[in-house]
Design a protein around this nucleic acid. Structure first.
Length: 278
DNA sequence: AGATGAGCCTGAAGGC
DNA sequence: TGCCTTCAGGCTCATC
């Protein structure tokens, strides 16, 4: 699924299509996804225009003039497709669960085979105080909110392996299984290293590499493994730049001799070079 | 506090 | 070809 770069790609694509517009039609093809759709969902989506489309962590936020915000999470396998609704046969795929049509006849399709995603309406002015937003960590790309020193202080409070600490959305928001492995490899830090053993310099380096990998992935339109596509139907290209993710038994690109290994941490696969990453 | 496993789902891939 | 098992980008909850 979509980690931060994939959600950001979707957000950037939706902005020009939705901001200042409104939905004239909402079609819900099932009772709900991860959570049941609330009764007021359709009404709230159609009765006011959209002021802004933003992203927080892996959540897409569509803000409406009437003071409500659509909180949209793409789960593990969700993708959003944007297309003109004119001259397109209304072909609805098995996993096309939500169809939104704008007043300008753009159709937004939400496709999610595994149905771990969700859509819910929340009051815009209270979102910051509601779960999960009230405990989310800082945005990794926000250089004002997150400095090397702040990041180091957060890590120093955690006696858990770096891999687990970086996946914790309350420590830093938006990283997922792929980009954690990639960032740790770039920083030459072992995923097994305890978070509270990093020096300020190491934490700063790690933060820099997290930013680098995220920015490069956003520029490439995200990563396409199975489900993610850019909303225009193109695939993202960053998967071609993976250095460790899904590359077990292949040579490490740093040392060019050790082989990447795959381990399991907290039930999730981790890939790293045991020689370079300390 | 942190680790682990289960659960929510479908589909792709690999082994036999 | 077909059946079976395993695994997958996330998140939450219960339990130890």
């Amino acid at each position: 699924m979509p980690e931060l770069p994939e959600v950001e790609t979707v957000c950037q694509a939706l902005k020009p299509v939705l901001e200042g517009q409104s939905f004239r039609e909402v079609q819900l093809n099932r009772e709900g996804l991860r959570y049941p759709f609330t009764k007021d969902l359709s009404d709230n989506l159609t009765r006011s225009s959209i002021t802004q489309v933003t992203r927080r962590a892996k959540y897409l936020l569509i803000h409406f003039e009437h003071g409500q915000t659509l909180v949209w999470h793409l789960g593990m396998s969700g993708c959003i497709i944007i297309e003109s609704s004119i001259n397109i046969p209304q072909e609805v795929g098995r996993h096309d669960h939500v169809l939104l049509t704008t007043s300008t006849n753009i159709r937004i399709t939400y496709r999610d085979p595994r149905r771990f995603g969700f859509l819910m309406i929340k009051p815009s002015d209270q979102i910051q105080n509601l779960s999960p937003f009230n405990t989310l960590g800082p945005e990794p790309l926000d250089e004002l909110a997150l400095t090397g020193n702040i990041f180091h202080a957060s890590l120093s409070r955690r006696a858990t392996p770096l891999k687990n600490a970086l996946l914790d959305q309350n420590l830093i928001a938006g990283l997922g299984n792929i980009y954690v492995s990639e960032a740790l490899w770039r920083a030459k830090l072992s995923p097994l290293r305890l978070a509270n053993t990093l020096s300020v310099n190491e934490a700063s380096l790690l933060l820099r590499e997290i930013r680098n990998v995220l920015k490069e992935a956003i520029a490439a339109g995200g990563s396409t493994l199975r489900d993610h596509k850019q909303p225009d139907g193109n695939i993202g290209y960053f998967q071609h730049s993976f250095k460790v993710y899904n590359r077990h038994s292949k040579k490490c690109g740093h040392c060019n001799k050790a082989l990447i290994i795959k381990i399991v941490q907290s039930g999730r696969s981790t890939y790293y070079c045991p020689y370079c990453q300390k």
